[in-house]
Write a protein that binds this DNA or RNA. Structure first.
Lengths: 133, 133
DNA sequence: TCGCTATTGATAACTTATTATCGATTGTGT
DNA sequence: ACACAATCGATAATAAGTTATCAATAGCGA
């Protein structure tokens, strides 16, 4: 049967408490703060299990390895900071009307990724090179 | 100096005429219809050159290898058909107002990918399992 | 607490995409 | 047409991420 190991609890714990999608390396580091012996193999194994069981979901960004977050967040999209590389959840609602497609095309889902500066990395007022798109 | 080879002409030709972003394998196959000896190494080499020279751009989708399209298309986004896996350009305009981010976050750019059925793969009217998102 | 077996940790192996190597080929200026 | 270097084709090498292997460890029911 399925066992309730320290490693599994630690991994689900750090993902649940992160508040944003975590990379496998982030999960490894944060998990090792709870279970120091934690191995990257166990991280991958457990992420696969937790995904299969429906607890977490992979977050896919172009050209990057999957990140993971808990399933219960509902529909949302993501913001990647071009300075610190962290990815944040955005829960504002986008209506399908805002996502036009050609006639005869059926839109079933979408991925929207915003790129820019998060609140921690926003340049000070008045510094150069900081206009928004 | 830079030479005007059959391979280079064929590769830029198939990308220009495709009307949608092509994968490296698609470029190889279509290019071999023009220059049968065309090698995958030449495809990668030429794609890198054409990108550096500004003729083409990589199109990045989550979890997939880069596709390529000509630069002159201007701002647009992409639609991936979940049936035939082809990627299409969408030239409808999206306003920044439609892409809300948290206060203090600066949006510099975005990637938007719609998933669904293209006009060729849309199920016939009345068939089951075909509601839009 | 004992014993069984699921799970772990360390690392080798694998996968897929891309790049490097190098002898053969082929544009291009003369 | 010639010469020569840019480019090509075939394939080995690389890179990053993920998975497999297997002896050691540790949940969990009795």
């Amino acid at each position: 049967m399925e066992r309730n190991t320290r490693q599994r609890n630690a991994i689900l714990g750090v993902i649940s408490e992160a508040g944003r999608p975590l990379s496998t390396q982030e999960i490894l580091i944060k998990g090792q703060a709870v279970v120091p012996s934690l191995s990257i193999a166990t991280v991958y194994r457990t992420l696969k299990d937790l995904t299969t069981e429906g607890w977490i979901l992979p977050v896919k960004l172009p050209g990057e390895a999957d990140r993971y977050e808990v399933t219960k967040l509902g529909e949302h999209y993501h913001f990647k900071c071009s300075s610190c590389s962290k990815v944040f959840d955005i829960h504002e609602r986008i209506t399908n009307n805002n996502l036009p497609a050609p006639a005869n095309f059926i839109v079933e889902s979408y991925d929207l990724i915003l790129y820019g500066r998060c609140s921690e990395c926003v340049p000070k007022r008045g510094s150069p090179g900081s206009r928004t798109a």
